[in-house]
């Protein structure tokens, strides 16, 4: 009977991690919408809603610790709990990055890079997270390798986007701009580069989730670095 309850707790942990992922991805997609539309109330909603993500994270962390302390899992169960423990940290960080994006998006719209370009990058990173959590849910090792490979493309795309921003900045003739315009321009550059960097980090967290999932499924640490 006690072992049945233990199995139910493991099943519940998996479902709860997937549910936390749904919440984080919802916030992240809202943040991308903010970036595209400048919707300030949606931005506030994403930023204010981060505490809910944090609470979920702490609850799940507590669940993992309780399972380790009371059930002392071993073998596949141990890898599952240890991986879940790590994955919820990645999800929480993605939630933080979503609040960053919502904050950048609510500021002045960039003139350096078309918002839809940023959003397209963001969507690629978001789909990697969604797929990574799908792989976690069904313990699909092949999928983890495929998602990790997509991160190389995302990194390259982010590098190119950053270079475009810097080139445009270099193309500016400061003598034609007022002091206020220069300040605005620098703030825009900074914000746009930070946005691209955060999107690239979302992709990294997706790879982390894949790495832990691969370890969980096959005891393979090939993606952990």
């Amino acid at each position: 009977m006690a072992r049945h309850e233990y199995q139910r707790e493991l099943d519940r942990l998996r479902a709860d991690v997937c549910s936390m992922s749904d919440l984080v991805l919802e916030r992240y997609e809202d943040a991308l919408e903010v970036y595209e539309t400048g919707n300030r109330s949606l931005s506030e909603s994403v930023i204010d809603g981060d505490h809910e993500v944090n609470e979920r994270y702490l609850d799940l962390e507590g669940d993992c610790i309780e399972l380790l302390a009371l059930q002392q899992p071993v073998a596949g169960d141990l890898r599952f709990v240890a991986s879940s423990f790590k994955i919820v940290t990645d999800l929480e960080r993605i939630g933080d990055l979503a609040t960053n994006l919502a904050g950048y998006g609510a500021a002045e719209t960039t003139t350096l890079l078309a918002p839809e370009g940023v959003v397209e990058l963001g969507e690629r990173a978001g789909s990697m997270v969604a797929d990574a959590v799908d792989a976690y849910e069904v313990e699909d090792a092949d999928m983890t390798w495929e998602i990790a490979a997509r991160d190389d493309d995302l990194d390259q795309a982010c590098r190119e986007a950053s270079e475009r921003v810097v080139r445009q900045l270099l193309a500016d003739d400061p003598s034609t701009l007022s002091g206020t315009e220069i300040e605005a321009r620098l703030a825009d550059v900074s914000r746009t580069l930070l946005t691209i960097r955060d999107i690239e980090r979302v992709g990294d967290h997706a790879v982390n989730i894949c790495a832990r999932t691969l370890y969980m499924a096959e005891n393979d640490d090939g993606l952990i670095y």
Binding site: Y6, V74, A75, G76, L78, R79
Partner: peptide
């Protein structure tokens, strides 16, 4: 190895209580 990644599924079932 036995407690992290046993090779035999019967061992996995035994040590995890299934």
């Amino acid at each position: 190895t036995v407690f992290e990644n046993p090779a035999d599924s019967r061992v996995e079932d035994y040590i995890t209580g299934k």
